[in-house]
């Protein structure tokens, strides 16, 4: 048989356990946003027992949020700026080349116009790719 002192300690222990459980239950009822707010330094000593029983407004539904006119791209557009280059364009004609003003082209597709090919040799020659490469390779051979 327990004596009176032992029964008193058991009763205090039971009451303390009930009290702790109640606090735990109250805490679990706090909405997450309020719990996060409660985790902030202020109010520092506020507990579930002392805090007013205020139910915060639920967060706005996604459906009610204003949507932008166009959804933002998932990935930043990389290519246009990367591919933006400058090129100097001029007619492929020696006589007009010297007088032709340089034209700067800034476009996403860089070679909307052809880059300069300066033909400073005789115009009567064959200017196909193969012919030019053949003459260039034979030049200066022993």
């Amino acid at each position: 048989m327990k004596n009176a002192e032992a029964r008193r300690r058991d009763l205090e222990e039971i009451l303390a356990r009930v009290h702790r459980n109640r606090i735990a239950v109250e805490t679990s009822r706090i909405p997450r946003s309020a719990a996060l707010k409660a985790a902030q330094p202020e109010p520092f000593f506020e507990t579930a027992d002392s805090s007013p029983n205020v139910v915060p407004e639920p967060p706005p539904s996604l459906a009610t949020l204003p949507m932008p006119a166009e959804p933002p791209p998932l990935v930043a557009p990389l290519v246009p700026d990367v591919m933006r280059v400058e090129t100097v364009c001029a007619p492929i004609e020696p006589a007009s080349l010297a007088a032709a003003p340089e034209v700067r082209v800034l476009e996403a597709t860089p070679f909307a116009s052809r880059p300069v090919t300066r033909l400073l040799g005789a115009l009567q020659r064959e200017w196909t790719l193969n012919a030019v490469l053949d003459r260039a390779w034979k030049l200066g051979r022993d």
Partner: peptide
């Protein structure tokens, strides 16, 4: 000049032109 210039530019290696001087 077209293909080589485009390839070098796209690779970031520079802007090139072709000059034929005589042969």
């Amino acid at each position: 000049a077209d293909h080589l210039g485009g390839s070098l530019a796209a690779l970031g290696l520079g802007k090139i032109s072709v000059e034929i001087r005589g042969d």
